Simulated assay, not measured.
Amino acid sequence: MNPRRRLLRGLGAACALAAAPGALRAGAGGRVLTATDVHVKDYPTVAAVEWLGREIERGSDGRLRLRLYHSGQLGREAEAIDMARFGAIDITRVYSGALNNAFPLTQALSLPYVFDSVAHLRRALDGAVGATVLRDFARRDLVGLAIYDCGARCFYNVRRPIRTPADMHGLKFRVPASDIFMRMIRLLGGNPTPLAYGEVFSALQTHLIDGAENNLRSYHSSRQFEAARYWSQTQHSYAPDVLLMSRRSFDSLRADDRELLLDAARRSVTVMRRLWDQSEADARAAVLAAGVQSNDCDLAAFRAAVQPLLDDYHRDPAIESLYRGIRSLA
């Protein structure tokens, strides 16, 4: 199915939900918000948004509720962004790499080797850097509710261990629709292939691609480890996830409900992180037990290979300001 048809199908399904009467959309003066995520039901971001829904229902005495469609039931991330902008859905969780081209400030969070660790990332997201990125969504009909970190992104493939950039030469790697990730793969010697997240497993099986890059939790929950048995600890990006809301939907809420939602979204970050830390450890144990070969990498060689990409983004004053803020917290 072509992208336009997928988008129209997703918009149609979401609009039908938005127009639905009775218990789905509203009841007894209340309202049901529709949320989406491409990840599976037990994924930490899904669980965190479900927790958020319980909090707003409790805090509003049932006046405000949330219904979450996980596992990509209402379409892919690129489609979800547009559906939220148009008000067809209310809330969506999106990977920041999918936002890079439309929301340039998210590029500062996605650049390779900007963050040194999860702790470094969390310090930045909890401070002025995170607040600046969230505010920027307002210029395109969205409200930034929260930023969920999602660990270190690494390469995995069906061919061989990757220890240096030379090992990537000639391999086709799936990337999100982000100029940053496409150029990064080229600088490392690979061939970038933009694909939706949901298409990666079959693309690995059919050898449309040789590998991909993602965090360990997604590598496990998507079962991509069954097709790509080589995991390499490149830790090239800590690009986080973002929880977004339709500006139209947000503005239609009562003032006290808007405050309730914003507060619950902020608190859901702690919930997500607790779940993430445990599930990432479980995922690592599971893939290793399944026979995945994991190896360390020459990180200095990877950093040197992508330096021209960083040099170009340093020329953008807004990105450079965020970059300096991030590095000051290292």
Rank of each mutant, 00 (worst) to 15 (best):
R4I: 14
R5S: 02
P21D: 02
A23E: 15
A23N: 11
G27A: 13
G27P: 05
L33K: 08
H39S: 12
K41I: 09
D42A: 11
P44V: 08
A48W: 00
E50C: 07
G53R: 08
R58E: 06
G59L: 02
D61K: 11
R65W: 02
L68K: 09
G72Q: 03
L74K: 07
R76C: 06
E79T: 04
I81T: 03
I81F: 02
I81Q: 10
G87A: 07
T92R: 01
T92Y: 04
A98Y: 01
N100M: 02
P104S: 09
L109N: 10
S110Y: 03
S117K: 09
R122N: 15
L125F: 03
G127Y: 12
G127T: 04
G130Y: 05
V143N: 06
V143M: 05
Y148K: 04
C150A: 15
F155G: 07
R163M: 12
T164K: 09
M168W: 07
M168Q: 06
M168N: 01
V175D: 00
A177D: 01
R183G: 00
P194G: 08
L195Y: 00
V200A: 12
F201L: 11
A203I: 09
L204I: 13
Q205S: 12
Q205G: 15
T206V: 06
S218R: 14
S221M: 13
Y230P: 04
Q233Y: 14
P240C: 04
D241G: 02
V242P: 00
L244H: 03
D251Q: 12
D257T: 08
L262H: 03
S268M: 00
V271L: 06
R273N: 14
W276I: 05
D277S: 09
A289R: 15
D298L: 12
L299A: 13
A300E: 11
L309R: 15
Y323G: 05
Y323R: 15
